[in-house]
Computed example of a mutant assay.
Amino acid sequence: MARRLASISVDLDSLPHYCRIHGLPESLLDARARGLVYTTAVPRFMELLASVGVPGTFFAIGEDVAADAGAARVLRSSHEAGVEVASHSFSHDYALTRRPLESIREDLRRADEVLEAATGVRPVGFRAPGYTLNAALYAATVERGYRYGSSTFPAAPYYTAKAAVMGALALLGCPSRAVLDSPRVLLAPRTPYRPEPARPYSRGRGAVLELPMTVTPRVRFPFIGTFATTLPMPAVRALYRACLGDSFFNFELHAVDVLGAEDGIPPELVRQQRDLRVPVAHKLERLRTLFGWLKSDYDVVTLRDAASHLAVNGQGSPLS
């Protein structure tokens, strides 16, 4: 019987990146708020993972780590505790795919250097800022020698909502710095695949295995932290059950999924980022439950280990 795998990954986007998404000035954030991801969110995730007895993967932004010695220490501690630290780029530029190839290469190189200096291990995985992938960025991940990427997010409801929010912000005169991906992502595979290098949202024979984030069959509703912590539990349970037919479950979260208004986040950002209104205690209890479900139904591993297993067993082959 084929081994059923699940992975839990967390994007460590700091609060300035949310200001950029919502068209808010970063000056809203004091030094304490800027550091909440590493001082508060990461320890909460570490406690959650340990309490359930499952590993995780953290996607860290090189720029954030380079600017904060405390963040580097937290990452090293996480790595030593068994968490995989992967790359979420250096600058987390939402328009990374619009840069020249040489600039993309430099961004990924700088991220690798910072994260290797922090943990002692070079990252083998990559997730694109804003989940946006194209041929140039995929080529850069191949050159860097990554074992896997996890950027594909073929979620139609998410894509539609993002387009609507970006349009509304533009009309209000405070445009988002996020970038809307190519609609081709909506037809990308839901399950692990080898991309076609020139068209990375299509199956092919690319060297870097792609591990898409989990969405439901047919409707392609995303099963990610934002919805898992905010939707009513019957809806979350139904979405989870809809995905149980997949042999790989890639549960993606963000650091803000364990943060809330009570952590002293500026009210201007809380108004825009609605999930920050949910009490932290509720979020933690919900995630503890969901991690438990995954542990019961799957073999929970890091994305690095999932990629290794899938590659060896041919599940990421061009015909899979």
Rank of each mutant, 00 (worst) to 15 (best):
L211N: 04
S176T: 09
V142M: 06
V165G: 07
S151K: 00
P197I: 06
S150N: 08
G167A: 12
R203N: 05
R177L: 15
Y138Q: 03
E210Y: 11
G149T: 10
N134C: 11
P197M: 08
P129N: 14
A136P: 01
T191K: 11
M166T: 06
A140V: 05
E143I: 10
S176N: 09
A163T: 14
R147N: 03
A136E: 13
T160I: 15
G149V: 08
P154R: 00
L172D: 11
T132I: 13
F126L: 05
V208D: 03
T216G: 01
A128T: 06
A198R: 14
R177T: 14
R127P: 00
G206E: 00
P195F: 02
Y131K: 09
G125E: 02
T214G: 01
N134T: 11
P154Q: 04
G130E: 04
S176V: 04
L171G: 13
Y131T: 00
Y146N: 05
R199V: 09
V185I: 12
P129R: 02
Y193R: 08
Y159F: 15
P192W: 12
A188S: 11
M166Y: 13
A164D: 13
R203M: 11
L172W: 10
Y201P: 02
L187W: 10
P212T: 03
A139Y: 03
G130R: 06
Y138M: 01
P129M: 03
Y138H: 06
T160M: 15
A168M: 13
P217N: 11
Y158M: 10
T132D: 13
A168Q: 13
R147T: 12
Y159I: 07
Y138P: 00
A164F: 14
K162E: 11
A139M: 07
T216M: 04
S176F: 00
Y138S: 02
F126N: 00
T152P: 01
T132A: 15
P129W: 00
A170H: 14
E196L: 15
A128C: 09
L169I: 13
P200E: 08
D181N: 07
Y193L: 10
R127K: 13
G204S: 08
A136S: 14
L137S: 01
F126Q: 04
A164P: 03
T160R: 15
Y201L: 06
L172N: 08
R127N: 03
S182V: 08
P212H: 05
G167N: 07
A207L: 10
R199T: 10
L137G: 02
R147V: 12
E210Q: 09
R144H: 12
Y148S: 05
P195K: 00
G204N: 04
A135R: 05
Y138L: 07
R205K: 14
T216I: 02
A139V: 09
Y159A: 12
G204W: 01
K162G: 01
Y131L: 02
R203W: 06
A178G: 15
P197E: 04
P157E: 08
M213H: 04
A139D: 15
R144C: 11
T141A: 13
A139E: 15
R205D: 15
L171D: 15
L211P: 01
Y158G: 03
A163H: 12
F153Q: 02
